[in-house]
Computed example of a mutant assay.
Amino acid sequence: MSTAAAPVSSLRSGTVLADLIPASRVRDLALVVGGAALTGLAAQLTVPVPGSPVPVSGQTFAALLVGTALGARRGFLSLALYAVAGMAGVPWFAEASSGWAMPSFGYILGMLLAATVVGGLARRGADRSVLRTAGTMVLGSAIIYAVGVPYLALATGMSFGQAVAAGLTPFLIGDALKAALAMGLLPASWKLVGGRQG
Rank of each mutant, 00 (worst) to 15 (best):
L79N: 10
L41K: 01
V47K: 06
A101P: 00
M111K: 00
I21L: 15
L186P: 10
G148D: 06
A80Q: 08
T169W: 11
A83P: 03
G51Q: 10
A83V: 15
M183H: 09
S78P: 07
R123Q: 14
G75F: 11
P103L: 08
G198D: 06
F61N: 01
V118W: 08
S57P: 03
V54N: 06
S78R: 09
A134H: 04
T46L: 01
A18F: 14
T39M: 13
P7G: 04
G148C: 09
A166K: 11
S13M: 03
V33K: 03
A188Y: 09
V138W: 06
L17G: 06
F76P: 02
F93V: 11
V90K: 01
A37H: 00
V164N: 00
K191F: 02
D19N: 13
F76W: 14
Y151G: 02
G157C: 07
L29H: 01
L29V: 15
V8A: 13
L77R: 03
V164G: 02
P50D: 04
G195P: 02
D28N: 14
S141E: 13
L20D: 04
L121H: 04
G120K: 04
S129D: 11
P187K: 11
T136R: 02
M102R: 15
G157Y: 01
G35S: 11
G89L: 07
A180D: 06
T39C: 10
R124E: 11
G184N: 09
G86P: 10
V147R: 02
L11R: 11
R74N: 14
M1F: 12
T169V: 15
G125I: 10
L139C: 10
G119C: 09
A165L: 13
A62Q: 09
L152K: 03
T133N: 08
G148E: 03
